[in-house]
């Protein structure tokens, strides 16, 4: 067997390296979902996690996440400087993955890549389609702003997106 026979499969190539939190079922997932956690069969103790506890946790986490990724106000009591660092860290993580997925954009933007990505990602959560959708949206934003030339890329569905499509579509 040669090394050429051992290329990583499509799925692994597409999703890129490392701890990329991939492929969310997107906004609206909650609507058809058992949010408040009626305990399933054999989960008697699960009833302890009642709807109030889940609702409060959902509210708190959504408020914090909005502050971190969607330009929302910092919830009361948090260290705002720490949240700013977390926001930058999340954007840096997205930027790193997009840079690896789209070396062409990295080349086209050169030293402006980080600033351009920060401008794109500021207040804009990572799209539900994962890092490839993020890369595509970034490229579209650059085209729309006239920063790069070229035609919009075809929208290739990822296997994970296909798997979870029934939740979003």
């Amino acid at each position: 067997m040669t090394d050429l026979d051992r290329r990583p499969p499509e799925a692994a190539r597409e999703t890129g390296p490392g701890h990329d939190v991939v492929g969310a079922a997107g906004p609206g997932q909650g609507a058809g979902h058992d949010v408040v956690g009626a305990a399933g069969p054999g989960q008697g103790a699960g009833g302890a996690a009642g709807s109030d506890a889940r609702a409060e946790l959902a509210r708190a986490q959504a408020e914090l996440l909005a502050a971190l990724v969607a330009g929302g106000r910092a919830p009361e009591g948090f260290d705002e400087e720490r949240l700013r660092i977390q926001t930058s860290s999340l954007i840096a993580k997205r930027r790193g993955v997009v840079a690896r997925l789209r070396p062409d954009l990295l080349r086209a933007l050169g030293g402006d890549f980080a600033a351009e990505f920060a401008a794109y990602a500021d207040g804009r959560p990572k799209p539900s389609g994962g890092s490839r959708a993020d890369a595509r949206d970034f490229a579209e934003a650059l085209r729309a702003a006239g920063r790069i030339a070229g035609e919009p890329a075809p929208r290739a569905r990822r296997w994970w997106a296909r798997l979870t499509r029934r939740r979003t579509g």
Partner: peptide
């Protein structure tokens, strides 16, 4: 890693309350 229809893109700490 997600809340309110948004993706964090990373692992975020849980509020560590009894609730």
């Amino acid at each position: 890693v997600r809340a309110g229809g948004m993706e964090a893109g990373h692992l975020l700490p849980v509020p560590r309350t009894r609730e």
